[in-house]
Amino acid sequence: MPARDIYHEQVKTALIREGWTITDDPYVLSFGRSNLFVDLGASKLVSAEKGNQKIAVEVKSFIGKSKINDLENALGQYTLYYDILKKTEPERQLYLAITDDAFNDVFKEPIGEVLLENKRLNLIVLDRLTGGIRQWIA
């Protein structure tokens, strides 16, 4: 099992504060002979008619020497998890959780903006100082 990101517990706590139930820590994706580990699985009752909303959350800190390298690695992992979830559990939505600092450093720059414009990924933006969720981008 891979090491946890430094913001893992903050993201987990923020999700719980917003009414999510953490169902898996980590969320195991079994596919073929491989097991992959998404940081968190969670669910939330939306309404009696709609039932539970399910998400999987991969937490990334973007604190490496190169933000672009961090982005490339996060996108590779996100794409792999996304494609497997589409086959195995299409009702579960995948999110990448990052801090507001990472969002400002990467996703407010042209390279990150193009990813958001093309709706390539879903983000949870964590306020690093308060520990709350600042923004959901889907």
Rank of each mutant, 00 (worst) to 15 (best):
Pro2Leu: 04
Ala3Tyr: 09
Arg4Met: 07
Tyr7Ala: 04
Tyr7Gly: 04
Tyr7Trp: 15
Glu9Trp: 12
Gln10Phe: 13
Lys12Ile: 01
Thr13Gln: 10
Thr13Trp: 02
Ala14Glu: 06
Leu15Glu: 05
Arg17Lys: 15
Gly19Met: 07
Gly19Tyr: 10
Gly19Ala: 10
Gly19Ser: 07
Trp20Phe: 08
Trp20Asp: 06
Trp20Met: 04
Ile22Phe: 05
Thr23Asp: 06
Thr23Val: 04
Asp24Pro: 07
Asp25Gly: 10
Asp25Met: 07
Pro26Tyr: 07
Pro26Gly: 02
Tyr27Thr: 00
Val28Leu: 13
Val28Asp: 08
Val28Phe: 11
Ser30Glu: 11
Phe31Asp: 03
Gly32Ser: 05
Arg33Met: 09
Ser34Met: 13
Asn35Asp: 13
Asn35His: 12
Asn35Leu: 05
Leu36His: 14
Phe37Gln: 08
Phe37Thr: 05
Val38Thr: 11
Asp39Val: 00
Asp39Thr: 01
Asp39Cys: 02
Asp39Met: 04
Ala42Pro: 02
Ser43His: 09
Lys44Gly: 00
Val46Asp: 03
Val46His: 04
Ser47Asp: 11
Ser47Met: 06
Ala48Glu: 14
Lys50Leu: 15
Lys50Phe: 14
Gly51Tyr: 14
Asn52Asp: 06
Asn52Cys: 03
Asn52Thr: 10
Asn52Met: 14
Gln53His: 06
Glu58Ile: 00
Val59His: 09
Ser61Tyr: 00
Ser61Lys: 00
Ser61Cys: 05
Phe62Gly: 06
Phe62Trp: 08
Gly64Leu: 06
Gly64Arg: 06
Lys65Arg: 08
Lys67Glu: 14
Lys67Gly: 03
Lys67Tyr: 12
Ile68Gln: 14
Asn69Leu: 13
Asp70Lys: 02
Asp70Cys: 03
Leu71Pro: 12
Leu71Ala: 14
Leu71Trp: 13
Glu72Ser: 09
Leu75Ala: 08
Gly76Phe: 11
Gly76Pro: 01
Gly76Asn: 12
Gln77Ser: 12
Gln77His: 09
Gln77Cys: 06
Tyr78Glu: 05
Thr79Ala: 15
Leu80Cys: 06
Leu85Thr: 00
Lys86Asn: 06
Lys87Trp: 09
Lys87Leu: 15
Glu89Thr: 12
Glu89Trp: 13
Glu89Asp: 15
Pro90Asp: 01
Glu91Ile: 07
Arg92Asn: 01
Arg92Leu: 01
Tyr95Ala: 00
Leu96Met: 13
Thr99Asn: 03
Thr99Met: 06
Thr99Ala: 01
Asp101Glu: 15
Ala102Met: 10
Ala102Ser: 12
Phe103Gln: 01
Phe103Met: 05
Phe103Gly: 03
Asn104Phe: 07
Asn104Gln: 12
Asp105Glu: 14
Lys108Glu: 15
Glu109Ala: 14
Pro110Glu: 03
Ile111Gly: 07
Gly112Phe: 03
Glu113Pro: 00
Glu113Gly: 12
Leu115Tyr: 10
Leu115Met: 08
Leu116Arg: 05
Asn118Gly: 01
Arg120Asn: 12
Leu123Gly: 09
Leu123His: 08
Ile124Gly: 03
Ile124Pro: 10
Val125Cys: 06
Leu126Ser: 05
Arg128Ser: 15
Arg128Asp: 10
Thr130Glu: 08
Gly132Phe: 09
Ile133Asp: 00
Ile133Lys: 04
Arg134Thr: 14
Arg134Cys: 08
Gln135Thr: 13
Ile137Cys: 11
Ala138Cys: 05
Ala138Met: 05
